[in-house]
Every structure is written in C-alpha cells, then in structure tokens.
Write a protein that binds this DNA or RNA. Structure first.
Length: 673
DNA sequence: CAGCAGGGGGCGT
DNA sequence: CGCCCCCTGCTGT
C-alpha cells in the first residue's frame, strides 16, 4: 500500500508540519484537537517512514460528517497512489452530494451547528456514508469523553467538531483563534493527564496524519499571525478554510458548485478542483526530465526547472544580488529597499520588458490583449521553451498606462550636455511619428543588438563585476533607447506598445515605493513608476530628450512581419538566433535610423563622464577616440569598451592601451565575445 | 472553461 | 536565501 508512495510529502503534510511548527513556537497545545487522532489506529512502521502519511487502510472512515471526512481526507492525500485518483474521482462524483448534504440549504457557515447534530448521531450518519471514505468518529477524541463547549451546552465526542463549534460563538474573527486555542489548551492539559508517557513521541506523528491546519482551527503563520481568508466578492473575512469555503458557497451557484469528496473544499472551477484533488491524491503528473522531481502543476515545474539553470534572471540594481526566482528578488528588494535591474531571459540576454512590480500582488498571466500578437510579431521562430516564456512574461506590469502619461522608459538620464530640451507638452509633432504604429517592441539577445559585447549570461558569479554592471547598464540603456523609438507616437505616447512596457500606477494600498520604484510626473500630473534603470536624477526633472522627426519609411521594417495584430512583446529568442552572428548585422541594418537617431543612453553618458558628444542629431562622437558614429548602437557599443576610470583600458578584457589609436586597434582586433 | 503565471509563504541549509 | 508548494485569478479559447 504505501509502496506506491514515492514522492515527497504533500502540501497537506507540509501544512501539517507548518502547524506543528506554529504550535511549538506559539505555545499552542502540543496535542491540539486536530492532533487528537485515534490513538488506537493501527500504524505500521512503514507508514511512519513514509512522510507520516497514512496508508490506504486508513482510507476507511466511520464518520459521515463533512468534518470527519475532511479530517480523513487530508490525511489520506499524502499517501494515496496516483492510481487512486481516478477511482476517487468516481467516488467524488458519486458522492458529491453526499459529501455536503449536511450543508445543503445551509450555506451560512454553520458548520458547528450542523455538526452538532452529526456529532450526537455518528452511527446513524455512518449509514449514509459512501464506503469509500470512512474514518472513525473517535479520531478526534480517543478517550471518548464528552467534550463540553465552555460557552453553551453543546457537547461533542469529536474535538475537531468542537473546534468548529467554537468558531460559531464569535463574530469577531480574530477572537476566535485565541478562544479556540485557549479551549484546546485546556483540553490538552486534560489529555496529557490521561495519556500514556510516550504520548509526546506520538503527537508529532499524529499531527501529520490529521487535519489540515487552518481548516477548522485558525492557522497561525510563523509570526503568530492568524491567517485570514478574504472573500473576493464581499468583505467577508474568514480565519479558517472551512469557514471560507462555507462562505464561498454562498457566492457559487448551486449548479456550478463543485465540491471535494475528501474535504469541504468548494469551487466553481473544475481545474481548481482538479488541482485540489491532485494534492489530495498525491498525483504529480508534471515531471522534470532532468531529475526525479515531479509536481502537481506546470507552474511548479517551471519553477523547479530554474534550479537546473545557471542564469540568474532576476537581479538587483543596487547590489550584486541575483536570483533565479522573481519572488526571491522581490523579497530582497523589499528587505533592502533596493531596485530591480533588468530582467534577463533564460539565455541570459536582457529583456527590458518585464518590470518587477516589487509590491504588486497581481497574479496570473500577464494581460494579453496585445502581448500575444506582439509575440506573434516578434517571435516568428516561436520558441516553446517554457522557461523562456516564463522569463519574458514574468512580472510584467499589468496595467496599461494612461494614454495621457509618459512612458517612463522615455525618461533616461540624459547627459547634461545633451541636446535641446524639448518640453513634454511640446513634443515635436512628428517625433517618432508613425514609427511605432504597428511596430514591434522586441527583446533582444546580446548578439542581435550588441554584437560586440560579451555574449554570456549573467550569472551569480559575474554580477559582482563592475565591468558587468557597466555592461549591463549599457545594454539596458541601449535597449531602452531602442524601445523608446519603437514605442512613441507623435504625442510621446506609447502606441501599440506592449502593456508590459507600461508602468503601473502605484498601488494605493501598497507600501511606499521609496527606493523601489519611482514616480514620474508628466505634464498631466499622472504618475507612473519606473524601474531603477530608467530613473531620472530627479522626479521633477524635465525630460531632456531630443526628439526629432523620423524617417517613417524606415519604420516599416518590422511591419513586414505581420499585420496590425503584430505588436511588440517581450520575447525570448531562439537559441539559434543567439548563436548566429550574422543576424546581428541584419539587426543592425534593420533598425538603423529609428534607433540611431534617437536619444542617448543615460548610463553610457554618465559612464564616460560627458565624453560623449552629439554634434548633430545624427552623430555621436567619442571624444576619447575622436570617432563620430552615426548610429547610437555603434556608438554605445564602442563606448562600452572604454573603461570607467581609464578610458583606454578595455572594459571587456582589461587590456590597457596607451592612446586612442592603440585602443581602437585593440577593440578592432581583439575578439571579446 | 481551463491553462498557467505568479504571489505568498514556508522549509531546509 | 534557494527552492518548493499552495492555490488564486488573469486571460485566451
């Protein structure tokens, strides 16, 4: 029976472990209600060695109450073989109504009330139960002593039911937790007085076999805070899952109500129930092809796959911290009030489109009103790499900026000696006009946009390097400059830009964005936030942007790829593209003017301490080398070779040149990629 | 309706 | 802090 169980402990088990931990750290009863399982239950040694799950033998249950059923189910889930899922599906469908018949017509969350009836008639109820799921009604009270509610005459043989009942006495949710705890603390003392000396050894084992924490008794997190469950459709706040699910029923039409056969879980979506059941049954159909890891959904697999990668996609702009996990980066940024750096694709190439919304709480995929077509447009060789897709889509800002706002990507740090200041509200009518119409916004591989820069992923070990940081700034700003040209319309308003290029307005409920995001006030007064790499030195700083009319004829380059559905999107590039230097040249040719004629990169400018100059709108001069570039990409690439402090020290390899000639020869002759 | 991205939290190191 | 897990909820179909 347990031989079928191969996987790691299930979530339920983890949660059970959680609650054990919580109880220990918060002085909860060592043998709480949900832990007072049937001490007479047979447990093989094998069972105990299998993540404390229970064997299918324990799949029997003598109780018909949802409470008891839930209790058994959550324990069962840990060891149920995958093969059991289909059977249990059948059972579920056959017994769905049964599962909650005690609640039919009573969706007000009065579990305690209905259960009080059940509790007093456990045997009768048992006759109604499907034989597939049984559990002793004594599970929660092996001593079989009648448990008395301290508030009312309610009594129960089942401690879990008593816990439920206790919640009915308090409307103030946060009082319930303390109340229930106190009651069970009291009961625990009684239990301990009558249990065997080795009870302590068993309690943890038993805890893992019993109810899911938070199901009936308020769950505490590691900080001792009661976990709450907020109804998204009303203001209801529950402190237990049971309460929450009970409440949720009131929002679900009866014909759509789907219930778990093994616990009180309810949902109106089949896929949610499926996921829920996978956890119950330990079904983990998503398997890693690189290791033995398996999991219950693709998201988890995607996350796991990162562990096999060497690319740290998420990096801090203020320190060398880099991580593969967006969530980890967010924690870092929040903790240290740092700023996010540009997200990398899984291949290590920079992807300017994802914006780390440090305090955002949005879930789910990025809005795809535009992004899908963008992807179609920009990714003809559409990769199926999940990681790539995940990387490019992760953390997009979900909200489309107001058309009256200015894309913060358009507000780089311009050099003090930059070109004419153009008032925001006086943006040239033709500036970038038409350029972005049906244009694409792309994420580039290094080779595509920066062919002469080292093509290597940013890995943890590399991010400490100043050179790498410098390069990263350079790449970032090159990309930003490109994106600028690709997304502006004549009003300076992004048009057809992917919404993940936009920035979201600060969440009024979010913590201060200090140190994490910036607010940029445009002429309309609207505010947006921008990642650190796009910040101006002052939020009130005028955009120091030279915007000029573009040759619209050149804007059609990308349009050839598709129709009006084509819109820019952050996309990863096929690895083959990354490896083909020939594409780099093509890219340079494809994007000559609209990129080259535009603004300068901020970091680059600062990097060379003003040694860049812009003789005219189309020229970029390296004053170290006295070379004029007509293309900002070329210019930026070139400047990337100049060292921060020693301009003739190669940024790429450290080679020191004596003068501009030898420096130029060096960068021309040396292969740095 | 269902796929799946990802926010949030926890465990192990 | 890396990694794992739960499960919500966005979005395309």
């Amino acid at each position: 029976m347990t031989g079928n169980w191969q996987g790691p402990s299930t979530s339920v088990q983890r949660q059970e472990q959680d609650i054990v931990k919580n109880q220990e750290s918060h002085h909860l009863p060592t043998t709480p209600a949900w832990a007072s399982v049937d001490k007479t239950r047979e447990e093989s040694t094998e069972d105990k060695n299998n993540d404390s799950g229970i064997s299918p033998d324990h799949y029997t249950n003598n109780s018909t109450s949802p409470t008891s059923r839930a209790s058994s189910s959550t324990a069962n889930c840990s060891l149920s073989p995958e093969s059991a899922i289909s059977q249990d599906w059948s059972n579920m469908q056959n017994s769905t109504h049964f599962e909650y018949n005690s609640q039919n017509g009573d969706l007000s969350g009065e579990y305690g009330k209905s259960h009080s009836v059940n509790e007093h008639q456990p045997e009768q109820e048992m006759n109604d139960v499907s034989n597939t799921m049984k559990q002793s009604s004594e599970d929660s009270n092996p001593s079989q002593e009648l448990l008395q509610c301290p508030v009312c005459p309610f009594t129960s043989l089942n401690r879990v039911t008593l816990a439920e009942h206790l919640t009915t006495h308090y409307a103030a949710k946060f009082e319930v937790a303390d109340f229930v705890k106190s009651v069970f603390n009291h009961l625990t003392v009684q239990d301990e007085n009558r249990t065997s000396p080795n009870q302590g050894e068993r309690s943890e084992q038993e805890l893992e076999e019993t109810d899911e924490p938070g199901l009936r008794v308020p769950r505490l997190n590691s900080q001792g805070k009661v976990k709450t469950f907020r109804c998204k459709q009303c203001n209801f706040v529950a402190i237990t899952k049971l309460e929450f699910w009970d409440h949720s029923r009131s929002h679900i039409k009866a014909e759509k109500l789907l219930t778990c056969p093994k616990c009180p879980f309810v949902t109106e979506y089949k896929h949610h129930l499926e996921y829920h059941l996978r956890n119950h049954f330990g079904s983990k159909p998503f398997k890693c092809d690189k290791c033995s890891y398996s999991c219950v959904n693709k998201s988890m697999l995607n996350s796991h796959l990162k562990s096999h990668s060497n690319v740290y996609q998420y990096r801090c702009a203020n320190c060398s911290y880099a991580t593969k996990y967006c969530h980890s980066l967010k924690l870092h940024l929040r903790k240290y009030l740092h700023d996010p750096a540009m997200v990398l694709n899984v291949d290590g190439s920079p992807n300017p489109l994802p914006i780390i919304d440090v305090y955002g709480t949005r879930r789910g995929p990025k809005p795809k009103s535009q992004t899908k077509s963008q992807e179609e447009a920009t990714q003809p060789n559409n990769s199926t790499d999940n990681n790539s897709a995940q990387a490019t889509s992760s953390q997009f800002s979900p909200e489309v900026a107001s058309p009256t706002t200015v894309n913060p990507y358009l507000q780089p740090n311009y050099p003090t000696n930059s070109m004419d200041v153009v008032s925001n509200d006086a943006a040239p009518v033709n500036s970038l006009s038409g350029l972005v119409q049906n244009q694409t916004v792309m994420a580039f591989s290094y080779n595509q946009l920066l062919p002469n820069l080292p093509l290597k992923p940013f890995t943890n070990s590399e991010t400490d390097s100043n050179v790498d940081r410098q390069l990263e700034h350079m790449r970032t700003n090159v990309l930003m400059g490109y994106l600028y040209n690709k997304t502006m319309d004549e009003q300076g308003i992004p048009k057809n830009a992917p919404q993940n290029l936009m920035v979201r307005y600060p969440d009024v409920n979010a913590p201060s964005t200090s140190g994490v995001t910036m607010e940029v006030a445009d002429v309309t007064g609207a505010k947006q936030v921008a990642p650190a790499f796009l910040r101006t030195t002052s939020s009130s700083e005028k955009m120091d942007v030279k915007v000029e009319p573009l040759d619209l004829s050149k804007s059609s380059v990308k349009q050839k790829i598709g129709t009006s559905r084509r819109k820019g999107k952050a996309v990863k590039l096929d690895r083959r593209v990354l490896e083909e230097d020939t594409d780099d040249e093509q890219m340079m040719q494809d994007e000559p003017q609209q990129y080259g004629e535009q603004q300068q990169s901020s970091a680059q400018s600062s990097t060379v301490n003003g040694k860049c100059s812009f003789g005219n709108d189309h020229e970029f001069t390296c004053q170290y080398c006295d070379i004029i570039f007509g293309n900002v990409v070329m210019y930026t690439v070139h400047m990337g070779y100049h060292g921060y402090n020693e301009p003739f020290t190669c940024n790429m390899c450290g080679h020191q040149s004596v003068d501009k000639v030898s420096f130029f020869l060096h960068i021309a002759r040396s292969k740095h990629s």
